[in-house]
């Protein structure tokens, strides 16, 4: 048990390390001279050289990587070429918004999908099952940005219940929450559709197994069999998909923040790419990757909590 956890934790750290190397390498290989983009094309070669050494760009790649990675560990991602402020600060300002979007969408998905999927599986072949299948098929087929536009047209433009975009800032909590409702729903609907289907098929798979027949022969009520025996056994595929979905949601915020003009990390990423602000892009890509790797690590931990067979856990 503890050995399994240590192995997984070591894997987690190594993956993060590998990700940081890859991100750094890819960013270093991109064409373009940061000094040039900061000083402009009229700058003299001497000024450019001075700027490069000021940015630490004249050091060999391994040394530059080490400096960057050590800084990142302390939350110091360098200074943005475009905004001339610390990248860490830029990220810290925007992280709460993006995290609220992602966690909110994940929470809505977790509230909606498993119940729908289990209800569909329990009514396999019946009208309830059909309804869930048709709705989820629609949810999967409609792209998130399109869903966003539909939501804006209906709830903002037509009904006027919620703002169509923009963010008032956290100092107005109610208005801030209202601004998040539509983007969270737009992100969550697609993922709920996917997860409801996965839950349904995983549950149907489990319902054919022998121990479900044993539970029935023991006179257990249907609902108890579903929630106490079928759902836990269906959790392994469900949790796997949830991990992948969290990654999809985090990357999905990039599009959603643009559609709803929300000042989050996704928007910062697009701006930095447009500005050729490589050092900020590099930090953001690392951060997104770290979030995804962390989600996968949590999924690994969840497996252990769910299934005693995985670790040979004794009593």
């Amino acid at each position: 048990m503890t050995r399994f956890l240590i192995r997984r934790a070591a894997g987690f750290v190594l993956t993060l390390l590998a990700v940081s190397v890859v991100v750094f390498a890819v960013m270093s290989m991109l064409p373009g001279d940061p000094a040039l983009s900061i000083l402009g094309i009229e700058a003299s070669p001497e000024a450019l050289a001075a700027m490069r050494s000021q940015l630490g760009l004249d050091a060999p790649a391994p040394a530059r990587y080490a400096a960057w990675a050590l800084g990142a560990l302390k939350g110091d991602f360098g200074t943005s070429y475009a905004f001339r402020v610390p990248v860490g600060g830029l990220i810290a300002e925007r992280l709460p918004l993006t995290l609220s979007l992602a966690l909110g969408a994940m929470a809505v998905t977790l509230v909606l999908a498993p119940g729908l999927g289990m209800a569909a599986a329990a009514r396999h072949g019946g009208p309830g099952d059909w309804a869930v299948m048709v709705l989820s098929q629609i949810g999967i087929a409609v792209p998130a940005f399109w869903m966003s536009i539909l939501l804006i047209l209906l709830f903002a433009v037509r009904l006027g219940w919620l703002p169509s975009g923009g963010f008032p800032g956290w100092d107005q909590p109610l208005a801030a929450l209202r601004a998040l409702v539509l983007p969270v729903i737009a992100l969550a609907l697609v993922q709920s559709a996917v997860l409801a289907r996965v839950t349904r098929s995983a549950a149907l798979e489990v319902m054919r197994l022998d121990f479900v027949r044993t539970a029935r022969a023991t006179g257990l009520p249907r609902r108890r069999i579903l929630w106490r025996h079928v759902l836990p056994n269906a959790l392994i595929p469900i949790v796997t998909i949830i991990g992948m979905q969290f990654a999809a949601i985090v990357t999905g915020t990039v599009v959603i923040e643009s559609v709803f003009s929300l000042p989050g990390l996704g928007r910062l990423l697009l701006q930095s790419i447009a500005n050729r602000d490589l050092i900020t892009v590099q930090a953001l890509v690392l951060l997104f990757a770290a979030i995804v790797v962390t989600a996968n690590f949590l999924v690994d931990l969840a497996y252990v909590a769910i299934d005693p067979r995985l670790t040979g856990r004794q009593s």
């Binding site: 022998d210 121990f211 044993t214 029935r216 022969a217 006179g219 009520p221 299934d307 005693p308």
Partner: peptide
């Protein structure tokens, strides 16, 4: 449902898969 286990019970051929593994 209320008669199962209380009036009549049943065991099956394959014991390896007949118990909830979790």
């Amino acid at each position: 449902q209320p008669l199962r286990a209380r009036k009549v019970a049943m065991i099956f051929q394959e014991p390896m898969t007949a118990l909830d593994p979790l």
